[in-house]
């Protein structure tokens, strides 16, 4: 057991030494693996951040009830009181047509044009904030439909339908990231496989001699497997650095975007478990790629 560990350590450090001694060739392979892995990792981080962002918006979801223009103020107050009593509802606020017009003039910059209007075109609006446990997209939709059936309500609108659409798009993007990851994982397998194939061919003479003096296949495979695994692991490390760098460059704009939507400001990185998965995945792909390549080529050397 001890001898076995010692032998593995020897091969590990010998392989590491070889990587360092041919920095250009190995560096190129590692760089290709790094860029290949960085692509899905960056997209993953992007989708994660957008999901977090849209999730934050969702939490502040409101339902706007546009009332019929001729609804009496008394009737509106009564409706507001009735809505407040429901336990799905956290709060209700009233926006009168005049107040809405003022706000619209201020926000839109169409002040002068709006002054030209004969009468205020805006309806009275009740803004309903649902209780927190009713803020899921489906619950909001159900509530919106129910409010739409109230007599005084002209139109009930769940303000954040676009958030739902965004979330649907993000789910699609997430699936796309996984498919892309699978394709690029195959690419990494091929890259490592090709590098190791060349290494095996370069050392054909040595492999033949080792075989003749009684080296087992496991003994012959070992340095190639270490080389592939190390290349994969270093490639993953490079990918991690690329993602971190990309995020650092984009953290400013992402922070602004977050602030605009009133949600979490800072952009999140890969996180602990995803980082581990990236490193383990890179090393694993390197191991598998070299294993396949070595297996195929050892069979051809008597």
């Amino acid at each position: 057991m001890k001898a076995w560990v010692v032998r593995h350590l020897q091969v590990f450090f010998a392989t590491l030494g070889e990587l360092v001694h041919a920095p250009v060739a190995n560096g190129m392979t590692i760089a290709v693996i790094g860029v290949t892995l960085a692509l899905p990792a960056t997209l993953y981080v992007g989708v994660q951040n957008l999901q977090r962002l849209s999730g934050g918006i969702d939490a502040a979801g409101q339902i706007s009830l546009f009332l019929k223009r001729d609804t009496a103020q008394k009737e509106i107050d009564a409706l507001a009181v009735r809505l407040r009593k429901r336990n799905e509802v956290e709060s209700v606020s009233f926006l009168s047509p005049d107040a809405a017009l003022e706000e619209f003039k201020r926000a839109s910059g169409f002040g002068a044009a709006l002054d030209a209007l004969q009468r205020n075109p805006l309806p009275p609006v009740l803004l309903v904030t649902p209780a927190s446990r009713h803020r899921t997209p489906t619950a909001l939709r159900t509530l919106t439909e129910e409010f739409g059936k109230i007599g005084a309500v002209e139109l009930a609108q769940f303000d954040l339908e676009w958030v739902q659409r965004l979330q649907a798009i993000l789910r699609l993007a997430e699936r796309g990231v996984w498919i892309l990851t699978a394709l690029l994982a195959v690419a990494v397998l091929l890259i490592v496989g090709n590098t190791i194939r060349l290494a095996v061919l370069n050392r054909r003479e040595e492999i033949e001699i080792v075989r003749l003096v009684g080296g087992t296949d496991a003994f012959i495979r070992r340095p190639f497997l270490y080389a592939g695994t190390l290349q994969g692991a270093f490639g993953a490390l490079l990918a991690w650095l690329l993602v971190a760098g990309t995020l650092a460059l984009m953290s400013g704009p992402i922070g602004e975007l977050g602030a605009l939507y009133g949600t979490g400001a800072a952009a999140a990185g890969l996180g602990g478990s995803a980082s581990m998965a990236l490193l383990a995945g890179g090393a694993g792909l390197g191991w598998l790629g070299s294993r396949i390549a070595v297996e195929r080529h050892l069979r051809r050397i008597f």
């Binding site: 003479e205 033949e208 075989r211 009684g214």
Partner: peptide, 18 residues
């Protein structure tokens, strides 16, 4: 095979050294 080959020493015309 490897264990069998350990019981046979082979010398070559072209030495076959690393």
């Amino acid at each position: 095979l490897p264990y069998f080959r350990r019981s046979v020493g082979v010398v070559f015309q072209d030495y076959r050294l690393l």
